[in-house]
Nucleic acid binder design. Structure first.
Length: 411
DNA sequence: CACACGTGGGT
DNA sequence: TACCCAAGTGT
């Protein structure tokens, strides 16, 4: 068993013995790089956007797509999305030609939706301005939307074999431990940059970049590093000083505020649900959602809620609220439900299609609305919407906590 | 530099 | 349960 996290990762077979030993003898290559590449030859994870160790660069389109999806997102979450995207759009030209809303709908659930907007924009630029080929330098890649310093370096190294350091959270952690850097992040970034740059080998820089990430993901883990299995343990100052698990140090994060609001779920008689497209910028930009008042610190008043109604109907308040935690705040949404003929000037979408295309918080609200509908607008919890649910905060509630459910019957 | 920007899984 | 965290970018 290679890992204790329960998921046995598959490995590329066929270790390559000659390359690492050759590298080890080269004065150009650090012992760190040589040891790490030797480890990678035996332990590289098999991923759909990768080539086996030593096999050379992978398809730049697939490298780019995977790197965008992997921003702040774990491999297991990305895999099914990557599969669907590459089936639908096998190359950058195809992706550029796709309707933006189709791309956003396919991205739904992955989070950080600016990535999807930039992805589509980037595909357009590469197709129209670069003949459908990605720039092969860091500087060139950096000009593209959604590609920052990390991603530019990662694509340059992995897809074009450029000897550059791709510094992400994994690399920061590995370097902080390797060199026992006790300065907290982000202040330590310049020093980490320096040691990471110095570690990049002239040969197999793409494999080196991926090896560092695999090491960070499987061995040099954030909480409990498995130093006993680490190919760099002998050179790790953090381990030698008993500091590995405590590095890198970070400045503490401020607490998350709570916000509260409501959403309207109107079901047309055929079961379709009323949706709207959110403004293109900001939270959940460009994604579909349910209408409702702004999300505020204090619960909206009945008047504010009424003013945000998409139309007149017998609105019933579902008993369950939709709860969701974003990066910088937690949210509680009351769900108002009604059924009837189409409301004037509003857009409807088949329920299943709407749920599929909606961001997670809106999926939760839709599920609750449908469950309420099924049980006559007074139901309890709906199954399958438990994830990412914040604690029951003592205050900041409206409706029952403020009194009877009076004002929501007829709006 | 600080903050906005999602989500799901691990501990 | 509550908090941490993950292959960051844009402003």
């Amino acid at each position: 068993m290679a890992h204790r996290n329960g998921k046995e990762e598959r490995r590329f077979q066929r270790p390559r013995a000659s390359k690492p030993s050759t590298l080890r003898e080269s004065a150009e290559v650090s012992r760190i790089a040589a040891d790490l590449l030797a480890w990678y030859d035996r332990n590289a994870r098999v991923l759909p956007w990768r080539t086996p160790p030593g096999a050379g660069p992978a398809d730049p389109y697939r490298v780019w797509l995977s790197e965008i999806m992997l921003q702040q997102t774990v491999v297991a979450t990305v895999k099914p999305y990557f599969g669907r995207f590459t089936t639908l759009w096998p190359d950058v030209v195809t992706l550029a030609a796709a309707p933006r809303e189709a791309v956003l709908a396919e991205w739904a659930g992955l989070g950080y939706y600016a990535r999807a907007r930039n992805l589509h924009a980037c595909a357009g630029v590469v197709t129209r301005d670069h003949g459908g080929r990605f720039p092969d330098t860091v500087e060139g890649l950096l000009t593209l939307p959604g590609i920052g310093p990390y991603t530019a370096a990662a694509i340059a190294a992995i897809a074009f074999d450029r000897p550059v350091a791709a510094i992400d959270g994994n690399v920061e952690r590995v370097m902080a431990r390797l060199h026992a850097i006790k300065t907290p992040l982000p202040a330590a970034k310049p020093r980490i940059r320096a040691v990471a740059d110095a570690a990049v080998p002239a040969e197999r820089p793409g494999d080196f970049a991926q090896a560092l990430m695999d090491l960070g993901a499987t061995i040099c883990a954030p909480k409990t590093p498995r130093c006993a299995e680490c190919p760099l343990a002998g050179d790790c100052a953090g381990r030698l000083r008993g500091l590995a698990a405590t590095l890198p140090r970070k400045t503490p994060k401020p607490p998350k505020p709570a916000r509260t609001s409501a959403v309207y779920a109107h079901f047309r008689n055929d079961g379709a649900i009323l949706i709207e497209t959110r403004p293109d910028s900001g939270l959940l930009g460009g994604m579909i959602g349910l209408p409702g008042p702004d999300w505020t610190k204090h619960p909206p008043t009945p008047e504010t809620i009424a003013a945000a109604a998409p139309g007149a109907a017998d609105w019933q308040r579902a008993e369950t609220e939709a709860r969701h935690v974003f990066t910088h705040f937690s949210l509680t949404l009351g769900v108002l439900v009604a059924t009837g003929p189409a409301l004037q000037g509003r857009r409807y979408m088949a329920f299943e299609a709407a749920r599929a295309a909606a961001p997670t918080v809106m999926r939760k609200a839709m599920e609750i609305a449908r469950a309420g509908l099924r049980d006559g607008a007074r139901i309890t919890a709906s199954a399958g919407v438990k994830k990412n649910t914040p604690p029951d905060e003592g205050g900041a509630r409206w409706g029952r906590a403020a009194g009877p459910r009076q004002d929501f019957g007829k709006l």
